[in-house]
Amino acid sequence: MQAMNVVVCVKQIPDPAAPPALDPGTKNLVRAGKLILDDSDAYGVEMALQLADAAGGGEVTLVSMAPNGETSGLRTALAMGAAKAILISDESLAGTDALGTAKVLAAAIKRAEPDLILAATESSDGYTGTTPVQVAELLGLPSVTFAKKVEVNGDSVKVERQTEAGYDEVECPLPALVTVTAGVVEPRYPSFKGIMAAKSKPVDTLTVADLGIAADQVGAVGARQEVTDVAEAEARSAGEIVTDEGEGYARIIEFLEQLKVL
């Protein structure tokens, strides 16, 4: 048994229950309101806590980037049991693309010297889904994406990786980066004690300059991709709505017969 340090990349996103909006000028997603922990990231946090436990000790460090100093999502993950967080917050980060985000996260992760880096397969607001692998490439580390199951054995990690046909068993020496699909572990609910403790856990806030990253690598300036247009999609017209009074199934059968599916 050896202590293992795990970094979990987490994203604080606008509440998915609230209607999303684009800034009319920049066409970026509006992130001005309260941000919460992306649900997808709770699985990585839970897995990190379980793996550190199984290794017999070690710390779970959160790494996150936000343009506005937001920490409420980080407090949720700290309340679950993560030890500390690194938040890169800088006004210049607004409009950063996935590659710019990866550069910032990679520079911060390097400071934590982790044995293992966990992330979700993609965020629930932007859905780009490339940032974790970009982080691994920037750090010169191997990566295993779409993990269904993760097991650490000493200095290597064994992963069941989702495939079209089933799954592959993949082995990889540490340090490495692994992305975790949702639903593979059951994220714990923060206890009252956990919530209280989270308030005093360290959140190290850094700027882009602190990380030694040039200002032209991030933000809208560094993005090198732009939104040219946003238009209404062709709407699908609503059809027939029937309230079931015991015969709803028969209407479905009739419909399937019309389509010659039956």
Binding site: D97, L99, G129, T145, R224
Partner: peptide, 23 residues
Amino acid sequence: ATYDGRDIAGRLSVKLDRPVLTN
């Protein structure tokens, strides 16, 4: 946009220092 396609695109993006448009 497959498991491997996304991996390759992400790795390539860094190697070429070019961004990616997904979805």
